[in-house]
Structure formats: C-alpha cells, structure tokens
C-alpha cells in the first residue's frame, strides 16, 4: 500500500459559485495545487484543487454552493511518490522521518520518531519510547545516519550538562 500524505482540508463554502475555504498544510499554501489530483481519506474520490489568493480554492466540477458545502471537512491526501525528490542529501521530508525506528550506535532500540519540530533554533527529533521522550538535535553529530528506506535512524545522544539555577533565580 502506498503511503499517503495529508496536504490540506476543504473548509466551508465561499460565495455561490462553488468556491471553498482551503486549509493548506503545505509549506507554501499555494503549493497544494502543484501535486496534481488529491484524494480523500478513503482514496476513492479525487479532487483537482486550484488554490486562490486569500485562502480560497476552486475544485474542478464543483460549481454551486450546495455541492461545495457537501465537501466541507474533506481531508486532501497525495501519494508520497508525488512529492519531488530532495536534491540535498541532508534534507528530508518530515513525513519520511516520522515513524522511523531510532537506534543508538550499538544497535540498542531507543524508540520511534514521533515528530520533527523546529522553533527557530534548529530542527530536533522527538523520539518516543513508551512514556519516555528523548529530544535530539537534528545534526550530523547527534543523528549520523538516516536510512529512510530501511526505516531507521542512528542516534548518538549528546551528553548533557545541567546548570542549576541558584536559589531564588528560578522563580524570576
């Protein structure tokens, strides 16, 4: 079964000519129209979506408000193969990294990559092992090997130094 990636969701109707609010989850909101026809959650229906400025979208074959309203809440998926291959060997799609098994340098299982997050100071992997969570900077030092095809990443957790706040400083 081919892996599918959630790219967006159809929102409420806009106007009487079949336009809809289009919630694009892509990096560039207009990119949702670049991957060809998108499918719904079941994979049975396909939609040719044309994003418009202002968060709106036009769906081929939908010309009136009632038809548009019936599609509200429909999630839009694309096959993973339709995403363009990365030219940079150190650049990965988040959807490829999520779900990989993490092992340390000795081959001991550390858990599964639950998500990849980035708050403006470098990406990091969130590795979940039961209730335990390990946050690892996504650098060559901490993640020396990424094998997407093999479904595993090698992680070398960096040593940690704790700088305790002095009494009274932690409350400020």
């Amino acid at each position: 079964m081919t892996k599918r990636v959630l790219l967006g969701e159809i929102g409420r109707p806009h106007g009487v000519r079949g336009l809809v609010r289009l919630h694009a989850f892509t990096d560039d909101p207009m990119a949702i129209g670049r991957y060809g026809a998108l499918t719904d959650a079941t994979g049975t229906r396909s939609f040719a979506v044309q994003p418009l400025p202002g968060g709106l979208g036009r769906i081929e074959g939908i010309a009136d408000r009632d038809a548009a309203a019936r599609l509200t809440g429909t999630k839009l998926y694309v096959a993973r193969e339709k995403l363009p291959p990365s030219t940079d060997p150190d650049e990965f799609f988040l959807c490829d990294l999520e779900g990989l098994s993490a092992f340390d340098a000795d081959g001991k299982a550390l858990g599964t990559v639950r998500s990849v997050e980035e708050y403006g100071a470098g990406a990091f992997l969130v590795i979940q092992d039961g209730a335990r969570e390990l946050l690892v900077p996504f650098t060559k030092a901490a993640v020396p090997a990424v094998d997407v095809a093999g479904g595993r990443v090698t992680v070398v957790p960096l040593p940690e130094v704790v700088v305790e706040p002095r009494p009274g400083e932690e409350a400020a």
Partner: peptide, 21 residues
C-alpha cells in the same frame, strides 16, 4: 525563551522538510 515555546502546537508535516545541520 523565545526559542522554547511553552504552549503546544501540533501542525501537519505535509510537504515540509527538515535539514540536518
């Protein structure tokens, strides 16, 4: 503190990429 948000935001991965530094 600007780089360590205190509230959870769960976005979608969609076609977003991460670069290994």
């Amino acid at each position: 503190g600007e780089f360590s948000p205190t509230r959870t935001f769960n976005g979608h991965s969609a076609d977003k990429k991460a670069k290994r530094g």
